[in-house]
């Protein structure tokens, strides 16, 4: 593997080099304190040294809102919507977000592969970047390190000034043609430590969850939770959606549109006639956590949580996924050693 040194003041040049070849989506500043992935218009606007974006790059493969078909009510006919192929570079992706894309790949290929997702996903090129864990990141606990370059075509590791740039695939090599960077012979610096941890690995978590169905933590969490759905909507591995019809004011044409949905919302499990199959917030919290650490995980062996910390960061009620899981582990272990 060849390593190069991308000096701090050549980052814009590097971004511009990518932009000449393909559209580049990268983290930008947003609002007062936030970051979001945006299509890069000015190389200087890219922020590689960011904490986390509200949405992961999931939004490019499974857009928050997406038209599934257009219809003409006067003819009672519909047309499929053209799905644009994404020949694009996703720059500055953290390891947990790329791991999340891997989880989504599974969801959208298992059973019936979905054209919409896969068309957008197929030709994506990823340039990862290492990150410094903040107080909410815990991806190390689910096996995803800040310097993990799995799935990347190019990976950047933060140095004091600039980045170590590794080319990992042919696609990555192609992208770099024409940009001369000095070789980097020295080693890579160690990345920072996580401040939050889940104390057991997935194999054990599955067992913990098995015994946690009636844990009081669900009721306790439900006391604080207002069911707003934010934790679902910011999660990079949540993929649930709802479908609605949009009709324009002439009542002659419109579209069938899907948009992100979430299992924390009461309407989510409601059927025609009004029956709600997950009525309590406690049952919905349990479902959310089990979807991350039990249900799909039992089938795949992997946690469906990537430790990005978004659900906790953006929860106005301060509900922490790590605290809930560690509480379940603690209760399970105490029960296991308790005298009969």
């Amino acid at each position: 593997m060849v390593q190069f040194y991308l000096e701090g003041d050549r980052i814009s040049e590097f971004v511009a080099h990518l932009m000449k070849q393909k559209p580049v989506y990268a983290p930008h500043r947003k609002g007062q304190k936030s970051f979001s992935f945006e299509k890069t218009e000015n190389a200087e606007d890219v922020v590689l040294d960011y904490v986390r974006t509200m949405h992961s790059i999931k939004k490019y493969f499974l857009p928050p809102r997406e038209e599934l078909l257009h219809f003409d009510l006067t003819k009672n006919e519909s047309d499929p919507v053209e799905i644009p192929m994404s020949e694009a570079v996703f720059l500055g992706v953290h390891s947990y977000d790329l791991a999340a894309v891997g989880r989504l790949d599974y969801n959208f290929t298992v059973g019936s592969p979905e054209k919409n997702y896969l068309t957008r996903r197929q030709n994506a090129i990823f340039i990862g970047v290492s990150f410094e864990p903040d107080k909410f990141h815990f991806s190390g606990s689910v096996g995803i390190r800040p310097e993990d370059s799995t799935g990347c075509d190019i990976f950047l590791t933060k140095l004091f000034d600039g980045y170590v740039l590794e080319i990992l695939t042919d696609k990555g090599q192609e992208l770099m043609e024409g940009l001369n960077l000095p070789a980097h012979d020295a080693g890579k610096p160690a990345t920072g430590h996580f401040h939050q941890h889940i104390f057991v690995p997935q194999a054990k978590l599955s067992e913990v969850m098995e015994h946690s169905y009636d844990n009081p933590v669900w009721e306790e969490t439900a006391g604080k939770c207002v069911g707003c759905g934010t934790c679902n909507l910011v999660c990079p591995t949540c993929y649930c959606f709802n479908v609605e019809e949009n009709v324009d004011i002439t009542a002659t044409k419109g579209s069938r549109e899907r948009h992100w949905d979430g299992c924390m919302l009461r309407e989510f499990s409601e059927v025609a006639g009004g029956e709600v199959f997950r009525e309590t917030l406690a049952a919905r919290q349990r479902h959310r956590i089990f979807r991350k650490f039990k249900y799909i995980s039992d089938q795949t062996g992997q946690p469906w949580c990537v430790g990005c910390g978004r659900c906790t960061t953006y929860c106005t009620a301060g509900i922490s996924i790590v605290s809930i899981v560690n509480r379940l582990i603690g209760d399970y272990e105490r029960a296991a050693v308790a005298p009969v």
Binding site: N107, F108, V110, G111, S112, E114, Y239, C240, F241, N242, V243, R258, D261, C263, F268, S269, E270, V271, F277, H287, F290, R291, K294, Y295, I296, D298, Q299
Partner: peptide, 19 residues
């Protein structure tokens, strides 16, 4: 069993009963 099978193809998540 009846649930809210919205997409029918195992994607949208609405009809899930546990796993």
């Amino acid at each position: 069993l009846e649930r809210r099978m919205k997409c029918g193809v195992g994607k949208c998540g609405h009809c899930q009963i546990n796993h």
